[in-house]
Nucleic acid binder design. Structure first.
Lengths: 152, 152
DNA sequence: CTTGAGCTTAAACTATGGTTTAAGTCAATA
DNA sequence: TATTGACTTAAACCATAGTTTAAGCTCAAG
């Protein structure tokens, strides 16, 4: 017999509160979850794998509503393969876009780190703020231009 | 005289709704914003630059409450340089962590894309699902192991 | 057969980041 | 001078993603 888990055990296993698992269940995010005769949720390894799957989709930025859509398609069987394929491919593009945006944000933060490193050393923000463009490290000058930073 | 903007013009310039600029102002996120004699907000280029600054911090994942903290420190002057420096360095680490997490999520999605590409070609999810580990592309096998994917 | 930990539910509550609404003000134009 | 469009406010509303609460149920151990 495959090992099964109560909601508390599953929560410990997954590192989330049991209330979250109940919330997901209420939203229909566990396609195969069953109950004991007295109504207690019984989590199998397969259910835990669905939970990890949901975690990955959430990490990728997918809202619960779209996860629900995906799961409904999964329940409908092989006839929905194309639609699910479109969803995961769209998600891949969304993740790539998010990573590109984060890289820009990181550059901006890199500039601010440089700015405060210089300010801390000299005791005043005037030093980095009024520095001539030619005196900036080339990468910093590039970021300033790209992020439209003119004053600070 | 420097060009100034009404809230509607500033909103167009920044590509956000005017209601968002009012909301930010109410939260104290415009340290230098002034009003006309009749109470109308007057946005200068410097205020627009603060707005773009806020946008970058938001893109980096900083909550508005922490942006507010940062702005209060900015208003307090050079005595708070060290504290602001700590904030931007911490934000840099947070962005790096977020990028690393997104890379893992992208790998997971890459696996799902492969899965549905194979399923679509054969007409059934059984094909990718039951494929022997030795028949998987090496990168796909690696992701499956790392993401603890056993069934799907 | 009682006790206690852990399970059940619905509903209220929280936090974040806004958006919308209602009622009113201001300033340039017909 | 009346209209029109853009501005003002406070307060209500919204969506997302849960968390907490209150009241009650289940089940293994003593």
């Amino acid at each position: 017999m495959e090992k099964v888990y109560t909601i508390g055990e599953a929560a410990r296993e997954l590192g989330v509160p049991a209330s979250t698992l109940r919330f997901y269940d209420k939203r229909g995010l566990f396609p195969d979850l069953t109950r004991s005769r007295s109504g207690i949720r019984v989590y199998t390894e397969g259910d835990l794998e669905w939970a990890r799957f949901i975690e990955w989709l959430k990490t990728s930025g997918m809202p619960l509503s779209e996860i629900k859509t995906y799961i409904d398609l999964y329940r409908a069987g092989d006839a929905t393969i194309e639609e699910r394929r479109r969803i995961v491919h769209a998600r891949r593009e969304a993740v790539k876009a998010q990573m590109a945006e984060l890289e820009l944000a990181r550059d901006f933060i890199d500039y601010k780190c440089w700015y405060y490193d210089v300010a801390a050393e000299s005791g005043t923000c005037d030093t980095p703020r009024t520095m001539a463009e030619g005196d900036l490290p080339p990468e910093i000058a590039r970021i300033k231009r790209r992020c439209r930073i003119n004053r600070y």
